[in-house]
Design a protein around this nucleic acid. Structure first.
Lengths: 197, 197
DNA sequence: GTCTATACACCGATAGAC
DNA sequence: GTCTATCGGTGTATAGAC
C-alpha cells in the first residue's frame, strides 16, 4: 500500500534524524564532557537550529534519556555476545564478567557517567530506557546462578566491588591502570569469600 | 596597636561573612541539591544581591572549592578525634575505619557528592582545599602502617571497596541499608586476603 | 572595602509563521 | 519539520554609590 509505504519512509527518516541527533550529542559529550552538552551545540552539529530539536525530543533530558538507553543496550549486546564465552569454572567466570564490565566502563568516561553515575543534575532515566540496564543485570544474575551463586547479597557485593574499582580508576588515575591491576585480586578475594575452589 | 586591631576586626568580619555565605550554600545544597545551588539563591539567604558575593569569592566554583575544603577538614577532624579509639587488632581496626568513613559518607549526600564524586561540571578542587583530603588519606595510611599494612595497593583496594559500597548505597538504596549490611563482610574479605588473623 | 544596579552572553524552552 | 523571535533563568563583568 502506498500510504503505508509513505508512513514507513517517514518513520525511517524520523528515526534516522533522531540517531543523527544522538550521535551529535555523544560526539559533543566526548569533546566537551557529558554535562557540557548544549542544545545549540548539538543542533549545530546536525545542521539545525536548537528549537528544531524539540520536534524529535521533548527536552534536553529526553536526549540524555535516549543516550542512557543506547549505552545500556550496547552493554547488553556485548554481554549477550560474550555469554557463550563465559568459562565453566566459577572463579574464572567471575573474573571474566568483572573484566568485561570493567573494560566496558573504563573505556568511555561520558558513557560510564551517564550509565552508572548521577552526574547530570535532575536527570532520572525513564522506565523504558532503564529496561536494558535491568536486562543486563538479569543476565549477570542468570550467569551467577548458573555457577551456583544465588544470593542477591553476593551479586550486590560483586557490583559494588567492581563499581568501586571502576570509579577509583576514573577519578584518581584516568588513563592509567592503578586500580585495573587490582581487579583480578579483588575478584579472587570475593571468590574465596564465596568458598569457590 | 589600633591599626592592627582594626585590621583584625575587618578580617574577622570578612571571615564571618564568608562563613555565612558557605552556610547558606550548604543549606541550599541540602534543600535543592548540590548542583542546584545558584548565586542568586545563596545571596538571598544572606540578604545580599548576587554580584555582592564576588566581593568574597571569585566565582561560583570558588564557593564549591571552599565547601570542598570545609567538608574534608570536617572529615579529617573526625578521624583525628577517632584516632585513639582505633582498636589494637588489625582486623577490628579495618572494620572501625571502614565503618567510620562509610557512615560519614552516607550521612550527607551533597557533602559526599562534593567530596568524592565529580558531580559539579567543570569543578576541580584547588591544591589548597585539597590538602585536608590528602591529610585524611595520610592519616589512614599511617593507621594502616601501624597495623602492619604497608603496601599502597592494599590501601587502594580498601578505598575502592568502601567507596564502591558507599556509592551503591547512595545510588541504589538511598536511606536504606542494603549495602551498609555488607560492609563488615567486605572488610573481613579483605582482611582474609591480607592474611590477618 | 562592601555592596548595588546594570548589563551581557549563554542556557533550555515556548509560540507562531512558513 | 524547521525556522525566527522571544522568554525567564543562569554566571559573571563592570561601574559606581556609600
Amino acid at each position: 500500500m502506498l500510504g503505508g509505504t509513505t508512513r514507513d519512509r517517514q518513520a525511517e527518516r524520523r528515526e534516522a534524524t533522531q540517531l543523527e541527533i544522538l550521535d551529535a550529542a555523544w560526539s559533543m559529550a566526548r569533546e566537551a564532557g557529558l554535562a557540557e552538552i548544549t542544545l545549540r551545540g548539538v543542533a549545530e552539529r546536525v545542521g539545525m537550529r536548537a528549537p528544531s530539536l524539540y520536534t524529535h525530543f521533548g527536552s534536553k533530558h529526553a536526549i540524555y534519556d535516549a543516550m542512557f538507553g543506547q549505552a545500556w543496550a550496547e552493554c547488553l549486546t556485548q554481554f549477550e555476545s560474550l555469554r557463550d564465552q563465559v568459562p565453566e569454572d566459577a572463579r574464572e567466570a567471575l573474573r571474566f564478567i568483572a573484566r568485561s564490565f570493567f573494560d566496558f566502563a573504563v573505556s568511555d568516561l561520558p558513557r560510564h557517567q551517564l550509565m552508572n553515575l548521577r552526574t547530570i543534575p535532575g536527570f532520572t532515566p525513564s522506565a523504558h530506557n532503564y529496561a536494558p540496564a535491568v536486562a543486563t543485570l538479569d543476565l549477570a544474575r542468570e550467569i551467577f546462578i548458573r555457577h551456583g551463586i544465588t544470593a542477591q547479597e553476593d551479586l550486590d557485593l560483586f557490583t559494588a566491588l567492581v563499581g568501586g574499582l571502576v570509579d577509583s580508576q576514573h577519578a584518581n588515575d584516568p588513563g592509567g591502570d592503578r586500580w585495573a591491576r587490582l581487579l583480578d585480586r579483588a575478584i579472587d578475594m570475593l571468590a574465596d569469600d564465596l568458598g569457590l575452589p
